[in-house]
Design a protein around this nucleic acid. Structure first.
Length: 326
DNA sequence: AACGCGACCTGCGAGC
DNA sequence: TGCTCGCAGGTCGCGT
């Protein structure tokens, strides 16, 4: 399932293959994949056809392509800017959800079983002319929306050009740990104002983005912290260590081309990731904690339900509180 | 404010 | 063999 490193891999692929090209046609094969586009299929296609892709930008797990010269946007998601004569800047937003893929394919490649949307692109030397959105579980999707000014300045995501605009639907998403504009102090102050469990905050995309269930467990394991640790007891040094580990684990995954568990996820060029072999906690229920093993203990990774999902951790390295004290 | 939960989906493996 | 059931996951929106 794509998390931040995988989405970044896709973003880079889009930057290479799609930026500068014109969208010449749109086939919506399954309208469920554009259900966040309130005005429906015709409006979706109409807003895309004839536009030029200007950039590929990411914030957390949201990914978007700013579009030049789109016709007037009629999407009701979009607030009126009130500026007469200036159409709002629009973007094609994408979220990969659980199983979404963006694939560059030539016309000779048969439609994928779970093909949902096909964008036809103007010809470009040596590049396939279709961008396909393929999604088995349909948690992801595409929609066209307007962009509004960011309130926190700085570059948006890891796009190569500074972004002053962000799609309204991504405006509530916090900076991610790989973002050059990520501020640890800002994150820590927000964390300390929360009265919640540590993992809950790690998964809250409004406080820190890009972390999903897998990397949350991995970072907590590396930092030797329990998922239910009350945020108000977390010292700054511990938080700093934790964030350092999220950055490490994501950077490792990015270097490896992204994680893939079940071959649902493929990057924009169609190559699977292979980082899953490096996981220390996630999915390792009943297997030895490798850190304990290195220290001569045999401890088995446990699985518990937390936030209605599985949490994997080491019962020795990542202790629960005793007498309520951490 | 914090949290739980249902809805949205499909495929897969376990159990009968 | 074929059925049902539970599970996997991210995000959003609603109820408490």
């Amino acid at each position: 399932m794509p998390e931040l490193p995988e989405v970044e891999v896709v973003r880079r692929g889009l930057a290479n293959w799609v930026v500068g090209r014109t969208i010449t046609g749109v086939d919506v094969v399954d309208s469920r994949s554009i259900r966040r586009h309130a005005m429906g299929t015709q409006d979706f296609a109409g807003n895309l056809e004839g536009t030029v892709v200007q950039d590929a930008v990411r914030r957390g797990k949201f990914l978007w392509l700013p579009l030049a010269e789109a016709d007037a946007v009629t999407d009701t998601n979009v607030p009126d800017t009130g500026e007469p004569g200036t159409a709002p800047r629009v973007a094609l937003m994408a979220h990969l959800g659980m199983s979404g893929q963006l694939l560059m394919q030539g016309p000779e490649v048969p439609d994928e079983k779970h093909l949902k949307v096909r964008l036809r692109l103007s010809p470009a030397d040596g590049m396939p002319d279709q961008l396909r959105f393929v999604d088995q579980r349909i948690f992801g999707g595409l929609f066209v929306t307007a962009m509004v000014p960011t309130d926190d300045g700085g570059p948006g995501g890891l796009g190569e050009t500074p972004q002053q605009l962000i799609p309204v639907e991504a405006a509530h998403i916090a900076r991610d740990p790989l973002d050059p504009a990520f501020s640890f102090d800002h994150f820590y102050s927000r964390l300390r104002k929360r009265r919640s469990g540590l993992k809950r905050v790690l998964l809250d995309q409004g406080i820190i983005s890009g972390i999903g269930n897998i990397y949350a467990d991995e970072a907590l394991w590396r930092a030797r912290l329990h998922y239910a640790r009350p945020t108000e007891t977390l010292r700054k040094a511990d938080a700093l260590t934790l964030i350092g580990h999220t950055q490490d684990v994501m950077a490792d995954a990015l270097a490896a081309g992204g994680t893939s568990f079940d071959s649902l996820y493929v990057n924009v060029n169609g190559a699977s990731g292979y980082f899953e072999r490096s996981l220390n906690a996630y999915g390792r229920e009943g297997q030895p904690c490798l850190r304990c093993a290195a220290e001569g203990r045999t401890t088995l990774i446990r699985r518990e339900q937390f936030m209605n999902r599985s949490s994997f951790s080491c019962p020795v390295c990542q202790r629960r509180p005793r007498n309520g004290r951490w």
